[in-house]
Write a protein that binds this DNA or RNA. Structure first.
Lengths: 222, 222
DNA sequence: GCATTCAGATACAACTATGTATTAGAGTTC
DNA sequence: GAACTCTAATACATAGTTGTATCTGAATGC
């Protein structure tokens, strides 16, 4: 068995312990759903969407397949819910940045923050990579995923516009395309950062990102 | 069955037709290998590495599993050969660009050309995406893939250095990191270009790439 | 032209996955 | 506390995959 990139198990949510309070059916069901979702994220990050069986997910969560099928129509169904959940959390992070005091002097810090927050734990990076690949092959899925991506793009485009205004720079009229490119750039750089941390350690990744960002948006030379 | 992104079958190589000339054993074997490799690229692009069975590959190539196992140790084995073959072809393309008359005024054209050449046919884009994901999980594979990526990075870094010199610009000392970032950027942008061609058509993709490149390397404002 | 060799086909045994149909057991309601 | 209702476990039928072991027919060499 080959050793993969280290996967951090998100440990914040719904730990396994004898519930003090007897849960209502709804609560219990919701807990099961959450556990299944968390387990799926870990399992998919470890083995890949296709190689992860429903049994893997259920087992990892401490259930059997019965529980799975009683909560989700299919693996794809669960996968989409997983992405939506993650997307919402990212959107919230971005929104928080936008709503924060927009100190116009540290755009770079903000972007670096976003970069750092975005996929701090590799699990969700991998899950999204998995999703992109899946989207290439399944038109229906692609549509749904694109909707999420475009939502994120628009948030980032707005982010860009805000900062340009703050700084008295003209808002580039390809702001949306630039936002899309930023997303691509971050993902691309993150890949190298994750898979060859010696060649591109965190500091270098952040530095090259901020070089490119500031060059692109402020015309600052490296 | 969901419709995926259209896959162009590379039709240049070793078509199926009754051979005029009787092939020698070696030639015939080589032909089989090539057919299997081509078929694998198409099949993997269509269904993904894991979901593609050895049978799929062999069948697609017009053989049975027997032929496959008599030519490759395993699916992974074939996959690596496939990547190497593709890598070599990309390296040659890049080298050709480097060796061509380095007209210093149209760096952008050259880069656009590279971008266009790089993954003109989606098959190889997808195969590489598949590889990246696989690399995250398999340390041995990751090492081999990283070696290829770093080779490409160095070529691109050299490319960047050459052009900067030509133009009398200082060669950025993070040239290698910038090369890596360029690779990431191109892959990232290409993904959106492929999966949402309405949002990011070819022209927009090229334009945003050249905006970012020229800003980064020449400090040209958009 | 006959024996040899090797590419590729076929047969086989062990495993793994999927989805459904049924069942057990616990929560809810009155 | 008895009937009812859901969640999740279990059992089952089906089907797909892998690698190896064995066989066949065509190319080669003497």
């Amino acid at each position: 068995m080959q050793m993969g990139i280290e996967i951090h198990v998100p440990d914040g949510v719904v730990p396994w312990r004898m519930p003090r309070k007897r849960l209502t059916r709804e609560e219990s069901r919701e807990q099961t759903r959450l556990r299944l979702l968390d387990a799926a994220a870990v399992a998919i990050a470890k083995k890949g969407l296709t190689a992860t069986s429903v049994e893997d997910i259920a087992g990892q969560a401490g259930y059997t397949r019965g529980a799975f099928y009683s909560n989700f129509k299919s693996k794809t169904d669960l996968f989409i819910e997983l992405l939506k959940r993650d997307h919402m959390s990212i959107q919230e992070d971005l929104q928080r940045l936008l709503d924060a005091n927009l100190s116009s002097d540290d755009l770079q810090k903000q972007l670096a923050l976003f970069y750092a927050q975005c996929y701090r734990d590799h699990t969700s990076y991998i899950v999204w990579a998995e999703a992109r690949l899946h989207a290439v092959r399944d038109a229906k899925f692609r549509q749904r995923l694109n909707a999420l991506c475009l939502e994120k793009r628009d948030t980032i485009a707005y982010f860009i516009a805000q900062f340009c205004k703050r700084l008295g720079m003209p808002v580039p009229d390809a702001a949306k395309d630039l936002a899309l490119a930023s997303m691509g750039l971050i993902d691309g750089v993150l890949y190298f950062n994750i898979t060859m941390p010696n060649e591109l350690p965190d500091a270098a990744a952040e530095s090259v990102l901020s070089t490119i960002f500031s060059a692109t948006f402020f015309g600052t030379q490296p």
